[in-house]
């Protein structure tokens, strides 16, 4: 007999997420996998890198999610002349009512619950690295003072895969901070009709908050409690190991096309995302299927391609497909 508390917690989480999806879906057409990925990051406490051509609804998705969750939202348009202070905040000289003057910290746009870092690869590495501490430590250090960011804190960065000129590719260290890298595809024809119907007619109403900050934190705790069997965890580890060209279990595609494989943070990302998937599926433990299905979004941005892969245009997903095909779910 399943304990009622556990059963209720899972069921309530599933219901809340369903409501969230429905609310976001009032503005967003299609892109359900991307929305699931973003919700996964929200529930797992990670950040997401959304990659897609302009105009596919990335910004709208993030804005709608922020509105539906009732979280504070900020949007940063990354440009080459953006400086760290522009996103982190700065000290300004403020004068009190009695005329006393003192330096006062004015928080930047990173001080929000949901931060949209639009076209993050257009900022200089210095500015991009300014986002590093915020993403990893959930805190911002200005001068000698560290300002914690309020939970939940989610950075949803976007980048355009086409326009490479004038961009600064994200360094590996920063890429590793993203829980998932979500590929935002172009909508199909039916979705296009829906998009046109919604955006060229009467303005649809904004999403209403269906969750609050406390509930999201509670949902995060629920996710963390999802059980993981040893053989499932072993499966995740073996997948991550197989992405390393030095590993004995690495397939030939990894040896040829990968210069550097996934770090332990990659295994964490896989397992966390799998937990979210499991609980959203109504299960109390992670299955190997969850690991397999979350491996690609959790690992694709962590593989550093080799020169041969870049020369031949080999995508990380293709390598990961090979890895998933060759790593068995169980080992006797």
């Amino acid at each position: 007999m399943i304990e009622p508390a556990v059963q209720q917690a899972v069921q309530r989480l599933r219901d809340d997420v369903a409501r969230l999806r429905a609310e976001v879906g009032r503005r967003l057409v299609g892109q359900a996998p991307v929305l699931d990925g973003v919700i996964t990051c929200l529930l797992a406490g990670g950040h997401a890198l959304l990659e897609g051509v302009p105009g596919v609804g990335k910004t709208m998705l993030v804005r709608a999610l922020a509105q539906a969750t009732g979280l504070r939202f900020s949007r940063i348009q990354f440009t080459p002349d953006l400086v760290p202070a522009d996103i982190l905040g700065t000290m300004v000289l403020a004068e009190s009512e009695r005329g006393a003057r003192a330096l006062e910290f004015r928080p930047g746009p990173v001080f929000a619950h949901v931060v949209l870092a639009d076209e993050v690869n257009r900022a200089t590495p210095k500015t991009q690295s300014a986002l590093l501490e915020a993403m990893q430590e959930h805190a911002v250090t200005i001068g000698r003072t560290t300002h914690p960011l309020e939970e939940p804190y989610v950075v949803l960065a976007t980048q355009n895969p086409l326009e490479m000129e004038g961009t600064y590719p994200l360094p590996e260290a920063q890429l590793d901070r993203f829980l998932l890298k979500l590929l935002v595809p172009l909508p199909d024809r039916a979705q296009m009709h829906e998009i046109l119907d919604r955006t060229t007619g009467t303005e649809p109403p904004d999403p209403q908050p269906v969750l609050d900050r406390a509930r999201i934190l509670e949902m995060r705790r629920t996710v963390r409690e999802v059980a993981v069997a040893r053989h499932v965890q072993d499966y995740a580890i073996r997948i991550v190991e197989a992405t390393r060209p030095q590993a004995p279990s690495a397939p030939e595609s990894v040896r040829r096309f990968v210069r550097w494989g996934a770090s332990p943070r990659g295994a964490q990302a896989v397992l966390l995302a799998a937990k979210v998937r499991a609980v959203l599926d109504g299960r109390y433990a992670v299955a190997t299927e969850d690991v397999r299905e979350t491996a690609k979004p959790a690992l694709r941005h962590r593989l550093v391609p080799s020169f041969e892969a870049q020369a031949e245009g080999i995508e990380a997903d293709r390598v990961l497909d090979d890895v998933l095909a060759r790593v068995p779910e169980t080992v006797d």
């Binding site: 304990e3 556990v6 069997a229 109390y284 433990a285």
Partner: peptide, 19 residues
């Protein structure tokens, strides 16, 4: 997963594992 959790003793420690 249930077989593994039961064998490893996780089911005795975690409510979700028991579930």
């Amino acid at each position: 997963v249930a077989v593994d959790l039961a064998a490893s003793g996780a089911a005795d420690r975690s409510a979700f594992a028991r579930a």
